[in-house]
């Protein structure tokens, strides 16, 4: 088990390939980076912190509206889209894909990989 880090990293790489994503990361719900496969020059820790805040804000908005649980956050930009979903109790899986990537495929793969991550992180 000494290399959970390595396992998660290769899992994320595989995820990027299968979902056609540019980048992905696993972060704790309180904003600390667990593992990431991001392009050079991106501040992974800052990205992790912002992802958790985004997710937290969405969940808070939902609970204020008494609208049940927030399942995922999707942000669509002019060049990319970002999708974040919960992966187990403590982690969030976040991914970035080009704006014309198939959202259905991404969501499907995210769910699948979220389950795997859940198992690895216990």
């Amino acid at each position: 088990m000494s290399n959970t880090k390595e396992v998660l990293k290769s899992l994320l790489m595989e995820f990027n390939r299968s979902a056609g994503a540019i980048a992905s990361a696993l972060v704790t719900r309180d904003g600390i980076l667990i593992s990431s496969v991001l392009p050079e020059g991106i501040d992974a820790e800052a990205f992790a912190a912002m992802t958790a805040t985004m997710m937290g804000a969405a969940e808070t908005a939902f609970s204020e509206l008494k609208a049940g649980a927030a399942e995922r956050v999707i942000v669509e930009g002019s060049r990319v889209k970002i999708v974040a979903i919960g992966a187990g109790e403590n982690a969030i899986l976040v991914t970035m894909a080009s704006s014309d990537a198939a959202l259905g495929l991404i969501l499907h793969q995210m769910k699948k990989f979220g389950e795997k991550v859940k198992k690895i992180l216990g």
Binding site: R29, D30, G31, E45, A52, S63
Partner: peptide, 22 residues
């Protein structure tokens, strides 16, 4: 060290709770 600066206003307190972990 990574520094996490929170929001001051009370209406954002749920996010404060979340960011306090770890």
């Amino acid at each position: 060290a990574d520094l996490f600066g929170t929001i001051g206003q009370e209406r954002f307190d749920p996010i404060l709770e979340q960011l306090g972990g770890e």
